[in-house]
Design a protein around this nucleic acid. Sequence first.
DNA 1: TTGCGACTACCCGTTTACCGGTAGTGACAA
DNA 2: TTGTCACTACCGGTAAACGGGTAGTCGCAA
Lengths: 213, 213
Amino acid sequence: MKLRILLADDHQMFREALRSLLEKDPRLDVAAETGDGLEVLRLVGEMSPDIVCMDINMPGMNGIETTRQITAAWPSVRVIALSAFSEPQYIQDMMNAGAAAYVTKAAAGAELLRAIDAASRDRTYLCPDATDAVKGILSGHGDETKGPARIGARERQVLQLVAAGFTSAQIADQLHIAASTVEVHRRNIMRKLDLHSVAGLTRYAIRNGLVPD
Amino acid sequence: MKLRILLADDHQMFREALRSLLEKDPRLDVAAETGDGLEVLRLVGEMSPDIVCMDINMPGMNGIETTRQITAAWPSVRVIALSAFSEPQYIQDMMNAGAAAYVTKAAAGAELLRAIDAASRDRTYLCPDATDAVKGILSGHGDETKGPARIGARERQVLQLVAAGFTSAQIADQLHIAASTVEVHRRNIMRKLDLHSVAGLTRYAIRNGLVPD
DNA sequence: TTGCGACTACCCGTTTACCGGTAGTGACAA
DNA sequence: TTGTCACTACCGGTAAACGGGTAGTCGCAA
């Protein structure tokens, strides 16, 4: 019984190439591929793959939000994050979203096979690049998940508008609250996410699908 | 007589996958691969490949400069730009550097085969994404209103760092220029792109792949 | 040659972001 | 009931962004 794999990446050439690489392994079957986050959800519901190899950058819906929805709706599906980036924030976001493994594109193809093997056995796996990247985090503060769950509804609303490029005064106007209150929300968001600039907030918002990129 | 190909891309997994894809074609032989620009030059001199598939983002030396040096030193070697980006500026830079073809990673694998075929016959080739991207330039060269905003190399560098969350002072330090100069670049970028906030710059940078999202 | 544009650098000023406080309300759970 | 937390609002201060000006050097093209 082959493992049925769904490839999700916005680069068609990478999908085709990776399919060629994976299908050298007779245990694997690349059942489908797509470059759109929304289509990933449709395909997962349609064909119930065993494993989804998920990129973070995708049109329609980004890989983090897509992963969150897959693991919520189809808990038996294993998602392997396959990203060009090894920043701790992405790794953390992806694993919090329910991914079973994280492999960077800078890693060897063998790493992806290890991740697929681990995921198929209900185990988690991080490629060496990823483990190196999170080491600093783990040693620093061993606190709990600091995903989007800790962001309040109002804070999320403010974050959206900040990332959209509005000033505090403009946001206050749109939300019918005082500008000082907007800044409090912004500061609380920054404290919770350990970010310190509008650029960081914007990147976080885009990563988490709060604003269109 | 097989075409001997050198793969240059900073993602090992992509190189391995692409090698697997290309070697399905019996006319092609992936003779070597590397992820470092300087090593590309060494390998080209060492093994004289017929074709180099060249990414733009690489450590050591970026793909544009590497292409420039290859075509200057070994005019018989054909360089095919294989990039994630389809911005006219990159296409123009690569073709000016002497590339024989430009294919985006969003294109189909068949596009790369067409490019290899064209390059081996001393012809140039642009994949559909790339031709679409340059059309905007050609049609709108009566210019003004919303021209594709030609961002200079230094400005692009500053934009990357701004979007990464650095302050002007930090950027000045990294680029070894005055903070005031950094702010001039920032203002010029904002004027050219009609943006007015760090959030807008960050979103633009992410949209265009200048920084990881 | 002249002119243009990119890059460099500094001046000025205003606006906004950023980082500390304090404090009242309502909802909700221990 | 008490405690916690989100949301609301304000105060003050420093740092940075934002927008305008001037000006020198350099390479490149008309």
